[in-house]
Design a protein around this nucleic acid. Sequence first.
DNA 1: CTCATACTTCGATCCTAGTCGAAGCATAGT
DNA 2: ACTATGCTTCGACTAGGATCGAAGTATGAG
Lengths: 230, 230
Amino acid sequence: MRDGPDIALIGSLIGDPARANMLTALMSGKALTASELAAEAGITAQTASSHLGKLANAGLVDQRKQGRHRYYVLSDDDVGQALESLMGLAAKKGHLRVRTGPNDPALRKARVCYDHLAGDLGVRIYDSLLSQSHVVPADDGSIRLTESGDAFLQSFGINPAQSSRSRRPQCRSCLDWSERRYHLAGSTGHAIYLRLLELGWAQRLEASRVIQFSSSSEKNLLAQFPILNG
Amino acid sequence: MRDGPDIALIGSLIGDPARANMLTALMSGKALTASELAAEAGITAQTASSHLGKLANAGLVDQRKQGRHRYYVLSDDDVGQALESLMGLAAKKGHLRVRTGPNDPALRKARVCYDHLAGDLGVRIYDSLLSQSHVVPADDGSIRLTESGDAFLQSFGINPAQSSRSRRPQCRSCLDWSERRYHLAGSTGHAIYLRLLELGWAQRLEASRVIQFSSSSEKNLLAQFPILNG
DNA sequence: CTCATACTTCGATCCTAGTCGAAGCATAGT
DNA sequence: ACTATGCTTCGACTAGGATCGAAGTATGAG
């Protein structure tokens, strides 16, 4: 054999449907308890416990004990990113889980993608920023926030500078599995998402990745993020 | 259950050690035959055939029949990227395959990472470009080729403009599992790698990801990619 | 102190999936 | 035509792991 990172280990961890469901649920960014995750995966508490032990052992999730609950979180940004890249790949290859839930249309409309907004409205925001040259594709094909974009975001109540931390890219485009188009990720994507919650325009549906907009707040959002020249 | 991409399917495909080995081997970018992949994974031809069928069925690899051989390639850039992100994650979490081969030091020195140069020398090139401001971190934390970098690459025999195609980012930083630092990926990284082969400085070791440099050509490379201010 | 809840550990069961031997096709060379 | 090589299909074997019931530990509530 040869040397190298053991992708089989991580792959097999993600490869079990129960664990994949748990990880997907944790992509919401929320800390979830062992029982919630068990329910999410449709398995009993014992089985879930065993799965979570393995995930924690491999360093994919962190556990925090609080009272008699035990909360789990993705241990790292990188875990979320890796999951996203797998999701993108799976979607591109047409591997979708069959059992389409009742809230599916809502999920396509708007949902959290790890820690930012995805779905129809997520793509809309990205397209709007692009059409106004608030973000531009950099020479290298990635994207970059312009000065006008900086000013725009400040007027929307976000300080992009403060939200840029350490390693994390400020802007990043993230492939959307429902739309098959790109939306805004990175710390700026996160900041916009938080601001939408703060304004009360968006509300996260309990125990789901769905983000709900009232019809008026959806109008607000469309007005705030217009698409020029179209 | 809920809707979404089926990451469990892809995860389980990558999760088998034999398949993981095959995919890793295909990260070299070369087309490999079924028997070569079987040897790589240390399994018999029958077993390999079954595995390759599954990978092809899921759209992770493509097969091309040529004579009585059947060549396999990663079907897509995205597959390589997803594998890379898993490798980065695995390395970061310290999950390394135990069986360290005899050519391990060479592997750390220089190797192909999907389609560009990684390892000690790959990191060196990246650092050099960075120290001379030939690439700069963009505002968003990603990286961007500067005008001086463009000129520099042209003098090295590469036309960055022509190498930029469609979707693919021109420059991209890729986390190195051996160095735990970044090296240059994207179409520019690919172009540099090709140029090194073309110049005869680098040679790919047969049936391996190791890239070999003679001591003189390594000196050439270090001279061509100096690190300023240090 | 007693009871309920949240979670883990242990043990047993069951089933999937990886594995290889043998045989079957296909292609190439002579 | 005959043989060798590369690969796939079939069938059977086996091991690893996912699962849950039951029992055990910790925390909180009354």
